[in-house]
Amino acid sequence: MSEETGLFDYLEKGGKLTSPGNAPPRYRAELMRIMASFVDSEMAGAAGFADCINDAPGIAERIAASRVVLEKFDHAERVLKIMADFGANAERYQSVHPWAARVDRDMDLGARRQPGDMRLNVFYYPLAGWTDAVVMNVLMGAATIVQLSELSRCSYQPLAEIFRDILPRETRHAELGREGLKKIAGMGDAAREKIRQSIDYWRPRVAATFGAADSPRFALLERFGLRHEANDALLKRWAGEAETILAAF
């Protein structure tokens, strides 16, 4: 195993892997897990948001929502291509899970992994109308930016490059959300009350996407160069940004 030990040393010092042939088995497995979680979250997120296009009040909002859906599917496809380089059956993968399936809105999944696909739990909860969808998009959009910035540094260079490409578009999705929210907030007290209710619903669920503060897996991922900053540090950064964004509402 000395070849592998040397490679882990290289990774710990910031080295990059560049093809499936370079990846030792445990590294491969953890990388696949990260990719599956991203692909499934984009697939499930886009599938859920697609239903909300018809709830949008005007053409501009419908275009914005359609764009978010289109681009999230595109992001899923790009990462799935990398999974395919590692042997995943990309064609079959796309239809293996019911991406639009949701649980009851009142259910509390916590941070426990659900059976089935690897989407973040936040994408298991149903959206309740346009305002709710926009609030979710604003909060989760901010979380996605924090999480993608972290993964843009990951040691599998082809994946890091895709995340760096995707990041500006996900940033734009979050901006579109904030613009939409501003518009809704201008529609009176009742609309603002609805926003507040949705914030109360989504804030803890989005916070849970950052995972446990003491995740034992983090040490392994850090050793592989797949992660750099701990879950609680990322959560804190998101919480600060969410606070700033939401202060206006």
Binding site: P25, R26, R28, A29, E30, M32, R33, A36, S37, D40, M83, F86, G87, A88, N89, R92, Y93, V96, H97, P115, G116, D117, M118
Partner: peptide, 14 residues
């Protein structure tokens, strides 16, 4: 490690 549990993604290879 595992992801799809449907024999498609190969994350659980051993």
């Amino acid at each position: 490690p595992f992801a799809c549990t449907a024999g498609v993604c190969s994350t659980c290879r051993a």
